[in-house]
């Protein structure tokens, strides 16, 4: 029995006005951020936006310059860090493999936990199998290809059966097979209750996997500029893919492939008081749920059988009388939708 059960409402991680600086240069300055348990949280942003630094801070590998991080409701400090260490593991971008065999690498975390050898052998074999490297135990780790090295590093993390897995840019420098394997692995781990926190600038990977997308720029959190609809392809014809999300079906441009996510930029969404005659293929009646000012525009959250957000001007808010509870039509073009 766990000594301190996780309350339903308690996020796994909670970050409060976190700051981090290398020497005097501020690298990270985050407002509040929560990551729920069993999420697949994806940090997206350009190089140098602070994604890696945030992952390392959450893993307790770097000291904070200010603010605080709560793990399972408790502030990270010398007393609580060992638990986080025990339960989480980070896989670096272009991981460091120890000189020696694949077995030596993958079994390392078990060795420092004093797991008996026969148990370790079995666990290592299983972990290697999960990453598609069965029988690689005796290969020289550093002689492997980029994709294989990445897989060894992931096996080295998986063998510890972590509750939280941090993956830093796992799709960088690896082949498409490894990316596919990674996607399957992340989803499988997540079904098993593991929280996976990934940094990437690979949008397709992020959109397909992420249950929570965290956008970063220049060390700050920025609001997402896209609607992300999770769903399934219901049917296809020559012109469209019919993508079901919530209680509605979206018309999306016809294309080959399997898709689980539709992405639509916030400023591609048009609000109107009446149904309009237009070439746009998607039009739904919607109710305004929330209206919030963001810089010089206004972000409107609506419900049209699925949640959708639109970015409009203050002028439009006033002239159309956009207030919570008001009824509108939401319109967007099929070609504005990207499928992943």
């Amino acid at each position: 029995m766990s000594a301190e059960p996780l309350r339903q409402t308690e996020p796994l991680f909670r970050v409060e006005s976190l700051r981090f600086a290398y020497d005097a240069d501020p690298v990270l300055d985050l407002a509040d951020l929560e990551i729920p348990s069993a999420a697949v949280a994806v940090l997206i942003g350009p190089n140098g936006s602070g994604k890696t630094t945030l992952l390392k801070l959450l893993n307790g590998l770097l000291p904070l310059s200010g603010g605080r991080i709560l793990y399972r409701g408790r502030r990270l400090n010398a007393q609580t860090l060992p638990r986080l260490r025990q339960e989480s593991v980070l896989v670096h971008q272009d991981p460091y493999l120890f000189d020696g065999s694949v077995y030596g690498n993958v079994s390392y975390g078990l060795k420092v936990r004093h797991i008996p050898t026969h148990q370790a052998r079995k666990a290592v074999a299983q972990a290697l199998q999960r990453v598609g490297l069965d029988g690689f135990e005796h290969r020289k780790a550093r002689a492997l290809s980029g994709g294989e090295r990445q897989r060894v590093a992931i096996a080295r993390a998986l063998v510890l059966d972590p509750k939280v897995l941090f993956l830093d840019e796992p799709t960088a420098n690896v082949d498409t097979d490894t990316i596919e394997l990674l996607e399957g692995l992340v989803l499988c781990l997540n079904e098993g209750g593991t929280t996976v926190i990934i940094s990437t600038h690979h949008p397709a990977f992020a959109y397909r996997l992420g249950s929570q997308l965290i956008f970063m720029e220049e060390g700050r959190l920025v609001p997402g500029r896209e609607n992300i609809f999770k769903g399934t392809v219901e049917s296809r014809d020559e012109s469209f893919i019919y993508f079901r999300t919530g209680t509605q079906v979206l018309r999306c441009p016809a294309q080959e492939g399997r898709f689980t996510t539709a992405v639509l930029a916030l400023d591609d969404v048009i609000l109107s008081t009446e149904r309009i005659q237009t070439s746009a293929q998607n039009q739904f009646p919607a109710t305004v749920r929330r209206v919030e000012a963001v810089d010089h525009t206004v972000r409107v959250s609506l419900d049209c059988g699925f949640p959708v957000q639109a970015l409009i001007t203050e002028y439009s808010v006033d002239s159309l009388k956009v207030v919570p509870g008001a009824e509108f039509y939401v319109t967007f073009k099929a070609s504005a939708i990207r499928l992943y």
Partner: peptide
């Protein structure tokens, strides 16, 4: 030595004495 080495050791659960030993070894 690679800066990732100590981080890799720590994230895999190595205690300071083990980080020292492994760093010397590498």
């Amino acid at each position: 030595l690679d800066r990732r080495l100590p981080e890799t050791l720590i994230t895999l659960g190595a205690r300071p004495s083990e980080v020292f030993r492994m760093t010397i070894w590498e």
